[in-house]
Write a protein that binds this DNA or RNA. Structure first.
Lengths: 160, 160
DNA sequence: TATTGTTATACTCTATAACTATA
DNA sequence: TATAGTTATAGAGTATAACAATA
């Protein structure tokens, strides 16, 4: 654990606070993300983007438009089409024509998809619990709040 | 800015604090990362992994072993070989045989690579400054510290 | 035998641009 | 004309496993 060498090793004392913050943020994020990707592959033979898409749908029982998914997942339209087609082939989601506007398509989880997602979400909860085990609730809350500030900042600064 | 829909939209009140924290962390990280990738592509015709590799080398004027780079960047050995070959083809880095152990290879920045990296690092500093502009130093420090706790936790929990 | 890096392979994600159909 | 999604294309990154050279 001491002498852990990672992305942050690149930063020196004299570097900007912004750079240090970013490298640490990225290191944490990568650590967690790599583990989750690995677990998803090993335990469920799936990938993070597929899981993320299903997670969004799980929140919207009536389904979502593909364009909205593209926005939420911050990826391109063509990308959503590709992942949707994969999941549909495995009967985890279905496409539904939107009768009000025949250009757009709704997609939603199938019963099989729901069952599958429920299992994965439960597992993800456990993985995270295990990874974060021992982190004080105070620390966790404070982090959660500070990240909200950061996020707001980034989005605001992007609008100009 | 209000009604921003993103990865976090998936989390509900009743979800675990761990999940919420993770989604927010990932959202922030993705926001920043996507912008940096985009800037690197547009302004320098390069990619984040290539930039990250050069950033590590910039810290070690005598060069680094490829295996150590693999560890620091948290990617596979074959991956380092691939990126190294690309950068070497563009004269940004060179491979150097290690005379003490002829199995291993050192790589380091060329003068051209150093110049290129300096420019990119300066630009990255500006991008980050702009993205984080308005974030209070207190908030930034607190975030930096909390992330250290989180990182330590993850690494400790992984050792068992 | 173990380690370092290479090679070959394969797969996923990703964006872009041209396209179709609908509005 | 504009919009939603599809298709075709291309490219990057990634891991894995078999391999060669060296220790």
């Amino acid at each position: 654990m001491q002498n852990q060498n990672d992305l942050e090793t690149r930063a020196t004392e004299s570097d900007n606070q912004e750079l240090k913050l970013w490298l640490r943020l990225l290191t944490c994020s990568n650590l967690i993300e790599n583990r989750i990707r690995s677990y998803l592959r090993i335990e469920f033979e799936t990938t993070l983007p597929r899981f993320d898409l299903m997670a969004q749908l799980a929140q919207e029982p009536k389904g979502m438009k593909m364009g909205d998914l593209s926005e939420r997942l911050m990826v391109s339209n063509g990308n959503i089409t590709a992942i949707t087609s994969q999941l549909e082939k495995e009967d985890l989601i279905v496409r539904i024509v939107n009768k009000d506007d025949r250009r757009s398509t709704f997609i939603k989880l199938t019963p099989k998809g729901k069952r599958q997602y429920t299992k994965m979400a439960k597992a993800q909860g456990k993985w995270l619990e295990q990874m974060f085990d021992g982190l004080s609730p105070t620390s966790s809350r404070s982090l959660y709040k500070s990240l909200a500030d950061l996020k707001k900042r980034i989005l605001l600064n992007d609008e100009q």
